[in-house]
Design a binder for these strands. Structure first.
Ligand code: FES
Ligand code: FES
Lengths: 145, 145
DNA sequence: TTTATAAAGGACAAAAATATCTTTTATTAG
DNA sequence: CTAATAAAAGATATTTTTGTCCTTTATAAA
């Protein structure tokens, strides 16, 4: 088990990739993105369709079309992507799968994991989509397997 | 997405349940455990078979048989259960699914998530199987949905 | 307007996780 | 020894996740 679903991993990596390639109105095709993040092209297409519907990224059809991110969206937090794909279980769900996480009727791990979940949430809320563009351009970070 | 797989959630809850019922050599049957933690009985049976093979819990067949935990095993860390069921991806895997998490070729989220993973690992290593027995007996913690 | 391009959409397929069913084996009580 | 009990083992079923294929729609260039 990983922290995020595979779908969500692809989604975040793809959004980072699109963000750092989409300056001055440049659009990136699915083939390029899939190659850039080492993911199955057709599956990624579905994921990006979803993110596009949710308004996290944008797309245009036809020649010179592709996926891109509005300047204004670069400041959106990563938690938007995670919620869109994996839901908010990671932020609010009980670590042991109880139907609701509550202070009143807590599971044994409640206290320790509440703190961990809060931290995950905070990191994802304070990290933005566009935040790593420079490092990505400079090759300091990897998005490939 | 939750932190642990459903299988692992059942496993941890079941082990807690067994731990707090298994004093003075008492053994607990699968029916009792499944009811006690609100889980599908036959699926849980498979999970406990596995934990038993891995030496985390013990079992005996026949009349008055059932599952129990050796006194000495009460001090085992929860990380043993998690590793047995979900593997160590949560502790060592890359948050964005890169084939290996490395300082040399890190993903953009490496630093922040390394710290989070380490904390999860630490909590699970320092929390023991038997640690909550008293609270469980006193009904301060819940293992049921 | 026609053609080429690229995403959207819907159907389908494969793999993994979750769940159930049936038979076998070990153990204990009578 | 026999019968009853309870876990082990193996087979099968269902659901969810992941991945692919094929057709349609929108757009732009020629
Ligand atoms: S009740 Fe389990 S984490 Fe809060
Ligand atoms: S490389 Fe992604 S978490 Fe370390």
């Amino acid at each position: 088990m990983a922290i995020f679903s595979k779908t969500c991993e692809y989604a975040i990596r793809a959004v980072f990739y699109i963000a750092h390639t989409s300056n001055k109105g440049h659009k990136t095709g699915i083939k390029d993105i899939a190659a850039g993040i080492d993911s199955p092209e057709l599956y990624l297409a579905k994921i990006l369709q979803n993110l596009s519907k949710q308004g996290i990224i944008s797309s245009s059809k036809g020649p010179n079309g592709g996926f891109y991110i509005q300047e204004s969206s670069l400041t959106k937090p990563l938690s938007d992507i995670v919620e869109a794909v994996d839901g908010n279980g990671l932020f609010y769900g009980c670590a042991l799968g109880l139907s609701q996480c509550s202070e009143v009727n807590p599971c044994p791990l409640h206290h320790q994991f509440k703190s961990i979940r809060d931290q995950i949430h905070q990191v994802l809320r304070q990290t933005t989509i566009g935040e790593f563009n420079e490092e990505l351009i400079n090759g300091l970070f990897s998005l490939k397997k």
